[in-house]
Design a binder for these strands. Structure first.
Length: 422
DNA sequence: TCTGGGGTCCTAGGACCC
DNA sequence: TCTGGGGTCCTAGGACCC
C-alpha cells in the first residue's frame, strides 16, 4: 500500500439527513434547512438542489420557488446536528483511531499502516456501516493526499456509478476528471481565485496543473503551490494539532434593528458567557477579548466597530469575561445606530499548564473555578439558562428568529420521538 | 421587509527601532 | 541639513473553508 492514504468521509446534505432520520416523511421530498435567523439556505436535499436552490442563498430570494414546489423548510436545530455528528464520528472511530474531525459533517481518516486489501471495498464497508448505525448517508474519497481525497469525494458524490465511494487507487480515470472539472472544484480555490484563474484561461484542473509555478506563486501565494503539490500526490497538508485552537467566537444577528444600549449589552453578555462556557469545556484560558457590533452589511450607512482588551491574565471565568465584554461595549456603542449584529471573540487561548496566574490572586478569583464548575453543571443538567448573570438580562429582544425548528430528538427527554404500536 | 455563524491562514501596510 | 534601509511586530482585511 502507498505511503499515505487518506479517506475523506463527508455526510450527504448533513442537516437535511439528520432531520430525515427522525422524520421519514421528509424522504424523497425537497427539503431545506435555514441558517440562524432563518436567513440563508445552509442545507438542501437532492430534490431541492434539482429545483435550482443554491447554497447560502437568502431565503427571501427563493420564497416563490419554495411555495410553488412545496419545499419543506426548517430552521436549523444545531443541538440535534451536533449530537448526530458525534454519533457519526464515534462510529468512524471503530475503523481507525486516526481520525481528524474537520467539520461538523466531515472527517479525514488516516489509513496508513492498516492492513487493507481493497481500499474501494473498505470505503463501501464504512459507508454502509455508518448508514446502518446512525441513519446518515455519506460519500467517501480515498487518495494519497487530503486535497485529492476531497476531490475524490466530489467525484463520488456526483457520479452514481461509483456508489458514493471513489478511490484513486482503484480507478484509472482521475485524469478525465482533471480535464473536465473547473479549478473551483478544488479545495482551497474559492470564488475570487476561480474568477482570476478563468481570466487567465485556466479553465480546468488540468490547466491549473500545467500552470507555471512562478505564476501560481505570484498570484496565489504559498497556498497555490501547496494545492498543486497535493494534486500531484505530494502530501503537504498535515494533520491538525488538536490543542491549537486560536480563537472562540460567539455572535448572532438580531431579528430586528436594535438601537438601545441595554438590549445590546444583554446580547453581548450572553455571547460572552457562552464563549466562556466553550472555553471551560475545552479546558482553555483566554488572554484577550474583543467585542464587535455592526449594522447590516447591506445598510446604506454600514458601520462596524471593534474593541479589544486584555483580560489581565489568562482566564476562563465567566464573570470576568462578561464584565470585560461589557467594558469593551461601552467604548464603541453609539446612539442612533441601527445595530443588527453583536459578537464576542476570545483570543490568545492556552491550556492551563501555560497560564501565568497572578502573584497575588484576589478574593474573587480564588473561588472562580469552583463556582464556574457548579454553574456549568446546573446549566447542563437543568437547562442552558438555569443560571445567568445579571447583565445577561431576562428579555429576548435580541434573539434570532427560528420559526420552523424540529425537536431535540436525541438530547432532551421532553422531546424524544414517540413510537406507537398498534 | 427579509441577506448565517464559527473558524483559520496569509498578506499588506504602518509603527517603531537601529 | 540631509532622511536610507533592514528588521520586527502588530493589526486590519481579505480569502478561504464548512
Amino acid at each position: 500500500m502507498a505511503d499515505k492514504v487518506y479517506a475523506l468521509v463527508d455526510c450527504n446534505n448533513f442537516y437535511v439527513s439528520c432531520e430525515r432520520v427522525f422524520n421519514p416523511c421528509l424522504e424523497s421530498k425537497p427539503v431545506i434547512v435555514l441558517s440562524n435567523n432563518d436567513g440563508c439556505v445552509v442545507s438542501r436535499s437532492q430534490e431541492a438542489k434539482d429545483l435550482g436552490i443554491g447554497m447560502a442563498v437568502p431565503f427571501f430570494k427563493i420564497s416563490g420557488l419554495v411555495k410553488k414546489h412545496s419545499v419543506i423548510t426548517l430552521s436549523s436545530n444545531y443541538t440535534l446536528y451536533a449530537d448526530m455528528s458525534k454519533r457519526v464520528m464515534n462510529s468512524l472511530m471503530e475503523f481507525t483511531p486516526n481520525i481528524e474531525i474537520y467539520s461538523i459533517d466531515e472527517s479525514f481518516l488516516d489509513l496508513r499502516g492498516l492492513k487493507i486489501d481493497n481500499l474501494k471495498q473498505y470505503g463501501m464497508d464504512i459507508k454502509n456501516k455508518i448508514r446502518k448505525w446512525t441513519g446518515i448517508p455519506v460519500s467517501i474519497g480515498i487518495a494519497p493526499t487530503k486535497t485529492l481525497a476531497k476531490f475524490s469525494s466530489h467525484i463520488a458524490k456526483k457520479n452514481p456509478e461509483y456508489q458514493r465511494v471513489y478511490s484513486t487507487y482503484d480507478e484509472d480515470d482521475l485524469g478525465y476528471y482533471f480535464d473536465s472539472y473547473p479549478p473551483a472544484e478544488i479545495w482551497g480555490i474559492g470564488r475570487k481565485m476561480a474568477k482570476r484563474l478563468e481570466r487567465n484561461d485556466i479553465g480546468s484542473v488540468s490547466d491549473f496543473m500545467d500552470t507555471e509555478e512562478k505564476w501560481i506563486s505570484k498570484n496565489m501565494g504559498i497556498n497555490g503551490l501547496r494545492i498543486k503539490a497535493e494534486l500531484n500526490g505530494e502530501s503537504c497538508i498535515e494533520s491538525e494539532d488538536f490543542c491549537s485552537q486560536k480563537s472562540i467566537i460567539r455572535s448572532r444577528s438580531f431579528a430586528d434593528k436594535i438601537f438601545d444600549y441595554e438590549t445590546i449589552e444583554n446580547a453581548i453578555a450572553n455571547h460572552a458567557f457562552r464563549a466562556s462556557e466553550k472555553l471551560r469545556e475545552k479546558k482553555l484560558y483566554a488572554r484577550f477579548i474583543s467585542v464587535n457590533i455592526r449594522t447590516s452589511r447591506f445598510d446604506d450607512q454600514a458601520h462596524s466597530a471593534n474593541y479589544k482588551m486584555e483580560l489581565g491574565y489568562a482566564t476562563n471565568d465567566g464573570v470576568r469575561i462578561v464584565e470585560n465584554a461589557c467594558a469593551c461595549l461601552k467604548n464603541i456603542y453609539r446612539k442612533g445606530i441601527p445595530y443588527r449584529k453583536a459578537g464576542v471573540m476570545l483570543t490568545d487561548l492556552m491550556p492551563l499548564n501555560r497560564v501565568q496566574l497572578p502573584i497575588e490572586p484576589d478574593k474573587n478569583t480564588v473561588n472562580s473555578e469552583k463556582i464556574m464548575a457548579v454553574v456549568d453543571h446546573l446549566n447542563r443538567e437543568i437547562k442552558p439558562t438555569a443560571i445567568k448573570l445579571g447583565a445577561m438580562g431576562t428579555g429576548d429582544r435580541w434573539h434570532e428568529k427560528r420559526g420552523m425548528m424540529s425537536k431535540k430528538f436525541t438530547t432532551s427527554w421532553e422531546e424524544m420521538p414517540i413510537v406507537k404500536f398498534r
